[in-house]
Design a protein around this nucleic acid. Structure first.
Ligand code: FES
Ligand code: FES
Lengths: 144, 144
DNA sequence: TGTAAATAGGATAAAATTATCCGAAATAAA
DNA sequence: TTTATTTCGGATAATTTTATCCTATTTACA
């Protein structure tokens, strides 16, 4: 469904958010360990998120990644997925036609459309805050 | 969402079904042309579907692919997807945890689960016959 | 019986995704 | 000012997915 890059990016963002609530900046190393992702690959993904202004990075000693505390509840999963995987998830045709189009639909267009739009809706209405809180309270987990 | 292999496999199956209603066997070449897929790659996918007994192949001159007319309406998309992509689509964790599990859920488990089960339900209730009929009546298209 | 038309299947190649490595740049603290 | 720490960014490698090529096998038909 999502690419590995996107999976890592989402989990990393949640972990950063969690720490940002406590004013703690987290290092790449800590993030990769916590979400069980390859360090160097994770670095690339975080750079992407920084460029898209979803997370913030600070270079040098005592540097690391953080998210503006006031922004956390307004950051939607959709923004993270879009920054990493683009919009192909909810704009592309399920059977690979060049464009998904009502006027020239593929055989599964109608059925696919509704699932895709639910996915889109889910991503657009889920924010980082709620996901971070579930981790904090031990309801959900980032690895294994 | 689906792999390219799966997309080609679904479209090829629809085209074969369509022709099987008219007792017409179709060649690899005709299939690849009709669904705009690479010929040799499509051959591998069709072999997979043959091994899974979803379609039937006949070697030699006047050979080709066909589907038992009486089976078409009972072949579900799910069988084709499973034959080609396995069951990772609806059993895997959306964020890549080793297993998707209520007892050890990832942060998006609850939200992801419902979308995934709708996808599963859609694949399990959609059969080749209805898809083939939509192509026949010009409601939907297999390429471009 | 021979030949042309097909699928089967193994080997290989190309492309995309995932992953690693290393030096440069920035920053805090000694 | 030097050093340790940390992100940045380019180059490269490994793996997976997608795609191609070539030969063997099967079959219809002249
Ligand atoms: S045309 Fe295929 S999903 Fe819309
Ligand atoms: S544990 Fe991640 S989707 Fe179920």
């Amino acid at each position: 469904m999502f690419s590995k890059a996107c999976e890592y990016g989402i989990k990393a963002s949640i972990f950063i958010a969690l720490n940002s609530y406590q004013e703690k900046r987290v290092s790449l190393k800590a993030i990769a360990k916590e979400v069980a992702s390859p360090e160097a690959f994770t670095a690339k993904i975080l750079q992407d998120l920084v460029r898209h202004e979803i997370i913030n990075s600070v270079k040098g000693a005592h540097g690391g990644f953080e998210i503006d505390k006031n922004k956390i509840s307004s950051i939607k999963l959709e923004q993270i997925v879009y920054a990493i995987d683009g919009n192909k998830i909810y704009s592309g045709c399920g059977l690979g036609l060049e464009i998904c189009n009502e006027l020239h639909p593929c055989p599964v267009h109608e059925k696919f459309k509704s699932i895709r739009s639910e996915l889109k809706n889910m991503l657009e209405t889920t924010n980082l805050e709620e996901l971070a809180l579930d981790i904090k309270s031990g309801i959900s987990f980032l690895k294994i």
